[in-house]
Structures are given as structure tokens and as C-alpha cells.
Nucleic acid binder design. Structure first.
Length: 129
DNA sequence: CCACTGACTCGCG
DNA sequence: TCGCGAGCCAGTG
């Protein structure tokens, strides 16, 4: 973190001994927790994960964190997709293919390149009927 | 500190 | 429904 206030805010209590007004978990850890909570066979958007982690408007941060997962991590990163309900392209297409394969294996329905709305973990009532 | 980049999102045409 | 452009906000060099 390069921003002054944030480096303090994202530090664990054991690291700074601050007993008040801060989150016990770093932003990265909160994102992990939310992603880990997405049920099998469902998906959430980057924006939803960010908001649920207490980081509204930080959708890109979610993408960054997922791209930095330690090898061997069992976090279900494949359950996070973009707001268009499509798998976000990375530099390498193989990541996209693997994500789709994993989702299909757990029963997520695709309509063309898009994921069926019913597979969204937290459906957004503000959208379409 | 500045500039560029990106697993994002939203509004428009 | 799709493509484009602008906004956004951290990470990196």
C-alpha cells in the first residue's frame, strides 16, 4: 500500500497493537473470505465481492488479489466473474478456459459465453425481470 | 512523485 | 445486444 492512511488501516492488530477502529483482517484477507463464501455452483461479480469485503468501488483490486493467489491455494477464484456475467479475459486465454471448465464442472449454466443469471450468488433485483 | 497498466463498471449510441 | 469511452483506484517501475 502506498497510501499513508491505508497502510495503517490494513495492518493486523498484532502488528501495530491498535485496539480500536480498524479491521482485524487486511483488505486482501477480507477478499479471500468473501470469495471462499461463494457457494459451489454459483458465481459473484468482482464488484459484489469488493462491496461484501467492505471495499466498494474496488472491483479491480479483487481482480488483482485473485491474480496474486499463492500457488496451491484452494480458494474458488473461478466463481468470480465480471458484471457482464462473463469470464474476464486475461493476457492468457488459458486462464479463461480453465475457469469456464471449473464452473461447468460444478454445474454453472452458460448461455453462450455468458453465465445464466440464476447462477448469480446474490441476484441484483434492480436489473431485469 | 509521475506515468502506465489492469482478472472492473457504467453510461451512451 | 454490442462496442466504445470515461471514470476509478491500486500496483509497479
Amino acid at each position: 500500500m502506498t497510501r499513508a492512511g491505508q497502510s495503517e488501516r490494513s495492518r493486523r492488530p498484532s502488528q501495530i497493537g491498535a485496539p480500536e477502529n480498524f479491521h482485524p483482517l487486511t483488505a486482501q484477507e477480507r477478499i479471500w473470505q468473501v470469495v471462499a463464501a461463494i457457494p459451489r455452483g454459483r458465481v459473484a461479480t468482482y464488484g459484489q465481492v469488493a462491496s461484501l469485503a467492505g471495499l466498494p468501488r474496488r472491483a479491480r483490486l479483487v481482480g488483482h488479489v485473485l491474480g496474486n493467489l499463492p500457488g496451491g491455494s484452494r480458494l474458488p477464484w473461478h466463481r468470480v466473474v465480471n458484471a457482464a456475467l462473463r469470464i474476464s479475459p486475461r493476457g492468457d486465454d488459458r486462464g479463461m478456459h480453465e475457469q469456464r471448465r471449473r464452473l461447468e464442472r460444478e454445474g454453472v449454466a452458460f448461455v453462450g459465453p455468458r453465465i445464466a443469471r440464476g447462477c448469480l450468488w446474490l441476484d441484483d433485483p434492480a436489473d431485469g425481470t
